[in-house]
Design a protein around this nucleic acid. Structure first.
Lengths: 146, 146
DNA sequence: GTTCATAGTTAGGCAGCCTAACATTTTGGG
DNA sequence: CCCAAAATGTTAGGCTGCCTAACTATGAAC
């Protein structure tokens, strides 16, 4: 429990955080619309890049429902970026795997996006970059708890 | 221009930033779905709260096209949260204004969201909160340049 | 005062998400 | 065993939010 004084400060920080987050969402979206893979597709591919995974896990990680995940995965499959195979240990489940083309597409798109963001980061000075780097794990912790 | 060594570091930071941002988007979305106003609606109302503004400015600030803004504004109007009136200085333009109910709804929703985020921030220690607070303006600068 | 630019709306379409209903497979209690 | 319940996906249908293209109405310029 906090005193009401710190509460006011917490609320102010919360408001600032929300505003920054909202603008960051626009930034994030603006990096989507260049005719490549969407952020969601990138996320799916990067999950599958580590190891084959089930549709339900894709859905959970993306924060969407299973039917919506199926829909997206089928599109990725039609684009030749992932394959769907029955899980040998449980024939109800479907394992989503990266194809070779999927891996290439993911790596290329990821690289392009990193370069675009890096170009923005390049405009900051070293102190600001250090501060940003220090803040990211903190935001991650918030994300994990939200 | 940076050396290739710093370039590698920039790319790594870019990747970490993108990942954090992506998760933050989920967090942001998760705060939408409680049957209240969406983030976009909140943004629109908060703009109109300062002063009446044109549909085209709403669209620009939200990063969407004018017809999409019209659509959202009409919904807000039907919900009784904003009014649309012809601009007295230019009858082509439409001024979007908060209604009394709109102002109340916006303030209440904003307060609720701030409280929810504040509850998360409350779980951080003081150093982390200070670091987060320091990083927000930096992220804002990135957002502004993206 | 015609012509061009500006501000919005309307119409039609697409993508992504949802819930509900369904088929299939696994699990587990009787 | 065996049948009921749970788990995993898919299909079907609908909603929302965004888009472009086409249109109306007003303002500005020459």
């Amino acid at each position: 429990m906090n005193s009401s004084a710190t509460d006011v400060r917490l609320l102010a920080l919360a408001q600032a955080f929300r505003t920054t987050l909202r603008h960051a969402v626009y930034l994030s979206r603006s990096m989507d619309g260049d005719g490549e893979l969407t952020t969601m597709q990138m996320s799916t591919l990067s999950m599958a890049a580590e190891e084959p995974l089930r549709v339900s896990r894709v859905a959970a990680n993306l924060g969407i429902r299973v039917p919506s995940a199926t829909e997206q995965i089928i599109k990725l499959e039609q684009a030749g970026l992932v394959s769907r195979e029955a899980d040998p240990t449980d024939s109800r489940a479907v394992l989503v795997q990266l194809t070779e083309r999927g891996r290439e597409a993911w790596e290329a798109a990821s690289q392009r996006r990193n370069e675009r963001v890096a170009a923005l980061l390049d405009q900051l000075d070293d102190d600001d970059r250090a501060m940003l780097a220090a803040a990211l794990p903190i935001i991650d912790r918030l994300n994990a708890r939200g």
